[in-house]
Design a protein around this nucleic acid. Sequence first.
RNA 1: GCUCCCUUCGUCUAGUGGCCUAGGACGUCGGCCUCUCACGCCGAAAACAGGGGUUCAAGUCCCCUAGGGAGCGCCA
Length: 469
Amino acid sequence: MSVVTRFPPSPTGYLHVGSVRTALFNWLYARKVGGKFILRIEDTDRARSSQEAVDIIFAGMEWLGLDYDEGPYFQTQRFDRYGEVIEQLLAQDKAYHCYCSKDRLETLRAEQMAQKLKPRYDGRCRDRIGAPPQGIAPVVRLKTPREGAVAIEDKVHGYITTSNLELDDLVISRSDGTPTYHLTVVVDDIDMGVTHIIRGDDHINNTPRQVHIIEALDAPRPLYAHVPMINGADGKKLSKRHGAVSVLEFREQGFLPDALTNYLARLGWAHGDQEIFTRAELINAFDFDGLNKSAATFDWDKLLWLNQQYIQNAEPAALLALAAPYLESAQLQLDKGPDIAAAVEAQRTRAKTLVEIAEQSHMFYGEFIRDEAAAKKHLRPVIGPALKAIQGKFAAVETWHGTELKDIVEQTAAEFDMKMGKVAQPLRVAVTGSSASPSIDTTLELIGRERCLERLDAALIYIAERAVA
RNA sequence: GCUCCCUUCGUCUAGUGGCCUAGGACGUCGGCCUCUCACGCCGAAAACAGGGGUUCAAGUCCCCUAGGGAGCGCCA
């Protein structure tokens, strides 16, 4: 039997990284075994669903390279089918109409809670004899077994058994005729031939109820794998107050899709000691055995580190393509600076995100911004003559090339009987405005002669003013 | 409240009864490299939630306790 997995998000806002991680596991498994991965939009809650949210889901999936083989299906387009199933269940006496008012149900719940019991529907309408009450739009409830237990096989938790006494007759159709979540997922999964359900472990308690629907429909049971949730640093479910949770925010912040994917895969799953996986390795290595049982805490530092690793090891052309949109939106005057590929290369070991690459490129393309603290520390009168000398040599040098420029700096340092660092650092501050930049040779080369000379002028003026004061 | 799930360094994790003197990674701290910031390299501190069993032997199996999470909707 060929494997079918699925990702069923609700389009009610952003695409949560936690959801994406379960999508990733489903995708990985399908790819590994040559199965099918389905995307299904669960938009039955029309009030909260929006087209915009649907587009966000598409964008997020595409960005991360999670392609699907079937779909997207939309549950709102399958209402006829759900209605059919509900009628069938009613006809087979596996479900019944319930006329109990919400008031009664609330009271019932309150009473049960007061008695320290688990709130459950008492089955009044299931046992009702005689004609149904008039003028009330009923809901439809599933007849769940009143004794026995359900055992579900879970690939990460083993067998989980639940007594049917814990369950009640759940509503499968609302009084307005729309189907409820439990009914729709089950019907969809059956119709779409889903064989493996990999989802968050917040669904463990839902599984027995869904199994009863499957049973009522005489359908084969899928295999379950309930993966742990992702928490924030405070141990609570990862949410907006922990920072970014929407995958598109990660994109905005300059993370590479492969880095995020790699990180997410390693949250709750491991393959020995391996930390960095290519896509292909991930697909190849993924298995249920590597899945963990306990919730994982989202660790920004580790994600950042991974992102940095990916930036560092990316092919030059690939990195450039990845960085391009960020450079563009950083409002740099790209036409008034060095070759963009060279600028990006110069940043690769010192940027944790693509946004940082863009920010740090300001010194090559943008306006000069002087870091006052750095200037105060390094642009002292004592360095003036050396900078002046360097400026003169820079103006005269034939080819503006890093190694020659560095030689000039070294020679000048020697002439003034200073160490390389004593000259290079003030020079760096003079031409970049900052105390941190790539090595002095590539920094000079990238900034270019004209800019270097101008900025040295400014630095010399700055120094002169300090000497007076 | 009831039911279910979970529990190895700060964090992600390896570990499937002896190979564990509990390994790796991030982070932290120290050092090296060095023109700065990084990268890289070397090193250090750092964990089996607690208590009972089972066993020649337990991080690994069982029970209890504690802590955390989830579900208990005409929400998904």
